[in-house]
């Protein structure tokens, strides 16, 4: 019983914390983002297993977490409102080479972040080569380049 309750509690805690602190916390852009995610993993592990290091406990925790994932996936598919609440919506941040400053301020991303994503995914050089830049619900920035004239 303990294993299941711990797994559910940690899943909910992590979901709430990451949803409440914004999309970019999931993005893993810098090395430090990656390190933070590793540390979060370590902190979670102790709470999930407690003092019970048996195979049964580990199996139960894993089973509960996978089941919760499936449940949330199903609910997100079935109820768009549920998906919005748990995942959020993508947000346009650059339109036709023009950064939307108010949106970028709210989401705390800079033009450098957008340009870095443009270089990485499309090999673009400048802001005016970007048709659309969208901050996806995953925290990553996707770029639609302007068609060459």
């Amino acid at each position: 019983m303990d294993a299941v309750l711990r797994a559910v509690a940690m899943y909910v805690v992590l979901l709430v914390i990451f949803r409440l602190t914004g999309k970019r916390s999931m993005a893993q852009v810098t090395t430090f983002d990656f390190i933070i995610l590793l540390i979060v993993g370590e902190a979670t592990q102790q709470a999930l297993l407690g003092e019970d290091f048996s195979v049964t406990q580990a199996a139960l925790v894993i089973a509960t977490l996978i089941l919760l994932e499936r449940l949330f996936d199903y609910a997100s598919w079935r109820l768009p409102r549920f998906r919005r609440i748990t995942e959020g919506l993508p947000v346009v941040v650059v339109e036709n080479g023009r950064p939307l400053q108010d949106v970028m301020t709210k989401e705390q991303i800079t033009t450098d972040d957008v340009l870095s994503a443009a270089r990485g995914s499309q090999g673009l050089e400048r802001m005016d080569q970007i048709k659309w830049a969208v901050l996806e619900s995953s925290g990553g920035i996707s770029i639609v380049p302007k068609s060459p004239v």
Binding site: L20, T21, G22, R84, L89, P90, V91, V92, K106, V134
Partner: peptide, 24 residues
């Protein structure tokens, strides 16, 4: 751009995120 957007939801989400950070 064929994308799902909802301005009022987005504003609400930002308010919740701000409140959530304060709570944390």
């Amino acid at each position: 751009l064929d994308i799902e957007q909802d301005e009022s939801f987005q504003r609400r989400e930002w308010r919740w995120q701000h409140g959530g950070t304060v709570l944390l």
